[in-house]
Amino acid sequence: MQRVHLLLSFVILALASSFASASDPDPVQDFCVAINDIKTGLFVNGKFCKDPKLANAGDFFFSGLDKPGNTSNPVGSKVTPVAVTEIPGLNTLGISLARIDFAPYGLNPPHTHPRATEILVVVEGTLEVGFVSSNQDNNRLFTKILNKGDVFVFPVGMIHFQLNKAHYNALAFAGLSSQNPGVITIANAVFGSNPRINPDVLTKAFQVGKDVIDYLEKQFWYDNN
């Protein structure tokens, strides 16, 4: 009986170890440069890949992150992504980058990245940043004031934001753990969906009158990405 219990313990431990280590598989080739040609490409991880023999240095290159983004918009910020769309060679590599420019008191509104953790470094200026944990954790706010050279991490899927606290411009760079992290800006998604969400849903969810919801749905929700 003792041997049976011991054997079961090993089986359970093996299964637990298997589940705990489950993740995306490692690449089985050097690279998989994304293309749009479905006739000559091989579909891998959401993109078609060109013949590796036809890959070149340009597939792994992007130029322009030295140029400030246009922050003359209602939220006062501009995100310049460098993901698989900008660098086809990022396909299957699970990483991307973004430049975020802020006008004085500009905001990168509350949003989520459904497929990526984000690590942000402030290059110029002062930012107030934060993320909110899930309902399971009582929606706790984790917030910090960041100065030049400071770094902050936003866990995958958490709603987060960045606000320029000063009367001068700010600049940050973000690394993301996905070739295509995606972005869901909360206000845009809730009040600017296409077609519109039934106002009865929103009045009950936000516990406000229909006139408030009507007003919010009529606003222009700017996309800074």
Rank of each mutant, 00 (worst) to 15 (best):
Q2I: 10
R3A: 12
L6H: 13
L6S: 14
L6C: 11
L8G: 05
F10K: 12
V11S: 11
A14I: 08
S18W: 13
A20L: 12
D24F: 14
P25W: 08
P27L: 12
Q29P: 00
D30F: 12
I35E: 00
T40E: 13
V44G: 00
N45G: 09
G46P: 02
C49S: 07
C49K: 02
K50C: 09
A55T: 09
N56V: 09
F60Y: 10
F61T: 14
F61S: 11
S63H: 12
L65Y: 02
K67G: 00
P68A: 14
V75K: 04
V75F: 06
G76W: 02
S77V: 01
S77R: 02
P81E: 10
P81K: 03
V82A: 09
V82L: 09
V84A: 06
T85Y: 06
T85D: 14
E86D: 11
I87F: 04
I87K: 01
G89P: 01
L90R: 02
L90S: 01
N91G: 04
T92Y: 05
T92D: 08
T92K: 03
L97T: 00
L97Y: 13
F102Q: 01
G106N: 07
N108H: 11
N108G: 07
H111M: 11
T112P: 02
H113A: 05
H113G: 04
H113W: 08
R115F: 07
V121T: 15
V123W: 01
E124H: 12
L127V: 07
S134R: 13
N135S: 14
N135Q: 13
R140W: 02
L141R: 08
T143Y: 10
K144V: 04
L146Y: 04
N147D: 09
F154D: 06
F154H: 08
F154R: 03
P155M: 07
K165G: 00
H167L: 13
H167Y: 11
N169E: 13
A170I: 04
L171Q: 06
F173T: 08
L176E: 01
S177V: 03
S178R: 01
S178I: 01
Q179S: 14
Q179D: 14
I184L: 15
I184F: 12
T185D: 07
I186H: 00
I186N: 00
N188R: 09
V190K: 01
F191P: 05
F191V: 10
G192T: 05
P199V: 06
D200Y: 07
L202Q: 00
A205S: 15
Q207G: 06
V208M: 08
G209H: 10
D211G: 06
D211R: 05
V212Q: 09
I213R: 02
D214H: 10
Y215A: 12
L216E: 04
K218A: 14
K218P: 02
Q219P: 06
F220W: 03
W221Q: 05
W221Y: 09
